[in-house]
Nucleic acid binder design. Structure first.
Lengths: 250, 250
DNA sequence: CGTGCCAGGTGCCGT
DNA sequence: ACGGCACTTGGCACG
């Protein structure tokens, strides 16, 4: 069976279904009233409440409250999960090694347990990333400025890795730091670090922050440091047609 | 009913259960074979496959494949969800405004639809954060060095916000950048930015990176810049009587 | 593996 | 809202 679901299961049914799900490498889904304990890189406690628990066959373990995109507690892929019944209590326990982390869920009441032997061979195809900004600049360097010649992508230097390294028409070394979204102080610091590292060994080095926009603070720091800005929005490459993104949702 | 679940539902049952879930502000959980389209800050497409869909009453929308901690597609809290049946096809659509983003799920087959009217009044209590490192330093400044006097926490300066600002026994201004985990190049850049900003207006300014450890690159840059390092691991404060605070006093 | 860095980052808290 | 930043960040690519 690819999917199974049981409302208000007994302890025996929970154990039974859980083990069957594990053997099938299915995704386990539990609606439960529970308490949660975590100890590892940090440590946390969560009192009794209703949550959704998701356990994936790769060891990922998610506990979701009824709000927010983020799980309140979790365990990353590679963790090992187990179910334990002792003294009229039932626990889910997930252990990660390196770093050692333990997630423990006391199931006070299980409203629903289900599993899903999911078959999925598709991968996400995403466009509009920073990497595509770099590609775009290599295809059309004049987007930065007339005479700009990009030479390296993801080039390791003394203290970090430069997004794009090139030269301008006057022979200056040009360092580009790309941001797919509005650039902040962090981005300026990053660019400054690269520029200073290159200036240790070269005469004329320019630094250009390339992004759709700048925060106010980033603009101030950029100007103070004598760095530059070029406005550029990451492209959304259409799979088939060159048209705008209106094709699907209008 | 607090929980409801239907295996292999008809279109009508899907609509029925989905609407009931919405009116109860329940969490909706769907096991489905589906395709996914997203357009917003970026744009993506995901071909047919089995996924778990979670829709929360706050508008959060998660689509999980069978691996990884992260959803393959999602919509953040505040988004509006709708279910639409047209021409023998059934779609889930979630819209976010500001920025405008659309997530569309074509449900090719629904194995299970369930909802959970979760009641939860508990919040996570977590310890071992960077904020607690700051508290610890204010309680025991000699952890940094003898004679250190912390003055401000989260102090806004010219180009950013300093974690801890204080003075040493010789009257130098001291800037602390705290990291709860191994500090990297980014952390050093951050500290350097604060130190340089303060040096514009003060004579003697020291910068100290406070973290459990340093990456090799961070160490190199830190030394080159004349910045300092103090080893400190974020404390895990025991909530109850079980004094697990050994790390504090040994 | 550790190092470095992007992410549709998310979430929190300030002005 | 915009800004600055932490996060059990997660995930990836590369040496």
């Amino acid at each position: 069976m690819k999917v199974e679901a049981k409302l208000n299961p007994t302890y025996e049914e929970i154990v039974d279904i859980f083990n069957r799900a594990l053997s099938k490498e299915a995704i386990v889904n539990i609606f439960a009233h529970c308490r949660v304990f975590y100890d590892g890189r940090a440590k946390s406690e969560l009192g009794p409440g209703d949550r959704v628990i998701l356990i994936k066959p790769d060891g990922s373990f998610l506990i979701h409250q009824k709000e927010k995109r983020e799980p309140v507690n979790w365990q990353p892929p590679g963790s090992s999960v187990g179910l334990e019944v002792k003294e009229d209590k039932i626990f889910l326990r997930s252990i990660r090694r390196k770093p050692r982390e333990i997630l423990e869920v006391e199931l006070l009441n299980v409203y629903l347990i289900s599993y899903f032997q999911a078959e999925d061979y598709e991968e996400l195809a995403l466009t509009g990333s920073e990497a595509e900004m770099a590609d775009l600049i290599f295809e059309n360097p004049s987007l930065i400025e007339d005479g700009f010649k990009p030479l390296f992508k993801e080039k390791p230097i003394k203290h970090g890795i430069v997004d794009v390294l090139g030269v301008d028409k006057e022979g200056n070394i040009v360092i580009l730091e790309l941001k797919r979204r509005r650039a902040d102080l962090h981005a300026v610091s990053q660019l400054k670090r690269y520029v200073e590292a290159m200036r240790e060994e070269h005469e004329k080095v320019r630094g250009i922050l390339v992004a759709p926009s700048l925060t106010s603070g980033a603009k101030k720091l950029l100007e103070k440091e004598g760095l530059e800005f070029r406005k550029l929005t990451p492209p959304k490459r259409g799979k088939s047609k060159r048209g705008r993104q209106k094709t699907l949702f209008d």
